[in-house]
Amino acid sequence: MEVLYPQCVGMDVHQETIVACALITGEDGRVESETRTFGTMTKDLFELLKWLEAKSISHVAMESTGIYWKPVYNILEGYFDMTLANAHRIKNVPGRKTDVSDAEWIAKLLRVGLIEPSFVPCEDLRELRDLCRLRKKRIGNLTAEKNRIQKYLEMSNVKLGTVATDIFGVSGRNLLEKLITKGYVDADDVDESV
């Protein structure tokens, strides 16, 4: 097969380690392979970056395993042509597999252009996605908490839902505050609040 990227690296990324396999084609056409293991702390990622630069690497590929690829991608993104691969599409042949063999397999696939890259949006869009997901989660938590409070009140025979359309609106909150401070709500108070 035609070699598209003569200086490339395949990486097997885990929670605590990154196994990187560099495949470098020499001037005589021979392929030199070097494998190193790095940690995943920031200082280790910069050590990985220096190693890749020293090897004159142009292309880097790794699997998109969980969230572990994200810090690696963030550090290396501006320096190399990064390829994020779907793990199901680059599965190695079954048998005895190791981190080293996985990294080497990824490097071999990348070298001949057999990895279909996953879409990774730009950094600004990734940050916006994270914020939107966090907001959606917080709103979901808030809704669940409101439902829990309303259920608890109903089970305690406090029928605020029949008096106020939104028990967490202004009048509903006033009623809840009076319940907390007085321990009960007069009929006159309910009429004034609604």
Results as ranks from 00 to 15, higher is better:
Y184R: 11
L179C: 08
V190S: 09
E104L: 09
C122Y: 06
Y184P: 03
D12P: 08
A164F: 15
K146N: 04
D166L: 06
S56G: 09
N92E: 05
T181I: 10
V31S: 08
E27C: 14
F80Y: 00
R173C: 12
R126D: 02
E27Q: 15
D191L: 14
T181F: 10
M1C: 13
W51K: 04
I18M: 02
G66C: 10
F80A: 04
S193H: 13
E16M: 13
D124F: 05
R173D: 08
E123H: 09
D99F: 08
T35P: 01
H14L: 12
W69S: 02
K178M: 13
L176K: 03
S33E: 14
V9S: 05
V112H: 03
L176R: 14
L23R: 13
L4I: 11
E53D: 10
V112L: 01
W51E: 08
L131C: 05
I57K: 06
C132L: 14
H59E: 01
D12H: 01
V19E: 06
V185T: 12
K55R: 15
F119P: 06
V93M: 12
T83I: 10
G183R: 12
A187W: 04
G169K: 13
M155Q: 11
N174S: 03
I167S: 08
L131Q: 02
E27D: 15
S101P: 02
E127D: 10
R133C: 10
K50T: 07
T143C: 07
P94H: 02
F119V: 02
F119E: 05
N141W: 05
I149F: 05
V158G: 04
S156K: 11
G140T: 06
Q150I: 12
M41S: 13
V185G: 01
K151R: 09
E53W: 05
H88W: 10
H59Y: 03
S193P: 01
M1G: 15
T35K: 03
S193E: 04
V194N: 10
W69G: 04
R138V: 12
D12Y: 02
K146A: 07
S64A: 15
L153M: 14
T35M: 07
I90Q: 06
G140Q: 11
D28I: 11
G113R: 05
H14I: 10
I149Y: 04
V112K: 00
K178C: 01
M1A: 15
S171N: 13
M82D: 00
E77Y: 05
G169D: 10
T42K: 04
I18E: 00
M1E: 15
E34R: 15
A87I: 09
I24K: 15
P121R: 13
T143E: 07
P117K: 00
A54K: 09
E34W: 12
L109N: 06
G183K: 07
K70S: 06
L125G: 00
F168S: 02
K55P: 00
K137P: 00
T35A: 03
E32W: 07
G95Q: 01
I18W: 04
N74W: 08
F119I: 01
A85P: 05
E27S: 14
K108I: 12
V158S: 01
E154Y: 09
L109R: 02
I139F: 05
L175C: 11
G113W: 04
L142K: 06
V60K: 03
E104I: 04
S193W: 11
H88D: 00
V185Q: 01
M62A: 09
D12G: 08
